[in-house]
């Protein structure tokens, strides 16, 4: 199938790439843009390891065609944020620091998906209840942690954001 030239906007930059119409956004990120943070893990669109933000909303890049998020001729289209775009100015975002400090990431393979899911949650709700956090986390499967330490990490990130400092968890263990 002949490839088509599209533009997509990822992590604040516009990229022009040639893709087959059947290309998934996930493949496009990993292969064409070298953004390998988003992972392929389940192939039945159940596990959430490929989660990215499309227009600020967490979605599965393995169930999204790249063509569907291409910019139109006027340059309009959704902004895509991957895990690589979550870090702030070259430093860890509070949620990233907190996941490290509190054991929210073990093998780390599901972590990029969780980073996208949780940062979207905190963007929309700076003080979610325990139930809201649990609900958000239920989109992504993790096989290492049993999710417990993620709750502590999310709490720590909220606390760190509240205190307006980038380093979560320091000295609080």
């Amino acid at each position: 199938m002949k490839k088509q030239l599209i533009s997509i906007r990822v992590n604040g930059r516009t990229h022009e790439i040639a893709i087959a119409p059947s290309q998934l956004l996930l493949e496009c990120l990993r292969q064409d843009l070298g953004l390998t943070g988003s992972k392929r893990a389940c192939e039945d669109s159940s596990c959430g390891a490929c989660t990215v933000l499309i227009g600020g909303t967490p979605m599965l890049s393995c169930a999204t065609l790249a063509m569907s998020v291409a910019l139109d001729d006027d340059g309009h289209g959704p902004e895509i944020t991957t895990v690589e775009g979550i870090a702030e100015h070259g430093s860890l975002a509070a949620i990233q620091k907190a996941y490290g400090d509190w054991g929210g990431a073990q093998c780390g393979f599901c972590t990029p998906g969780f980073m996208c899911t949780v940062s979207a949650l905190l963007d929309h709700n700076s003080d979610p209840s325990e139930a809201e956090v649990r609900d958000a986390l239920s989109s992504n499967l993790c096989r290492c942690t049993g999710y417990m330490q993620m709750y502590q990490a999310v709490r720590a990130a909220i606390e760190a954001e509240r205190k307006g400092r980038a380093a979560a968890g320091t000295g609080t263990h």
Binding site: T36, T82, E84, Q96, A105, G108, T111, M115
Partner: peptide, 22 residues
């Protein structure tokens, strides 16, 4: 005896850490 973040934690939370398929 003290809780410390994994030495490779940042690679995992930023997506920069490389697994074989990457």
């Amino acid at each position: 005896g003290k809780p410390v973040a994994f030495v490779d934690a940042a690679g995992k939370t930023t997506g920069s850490g490389k697994y074989t398929d990457d």
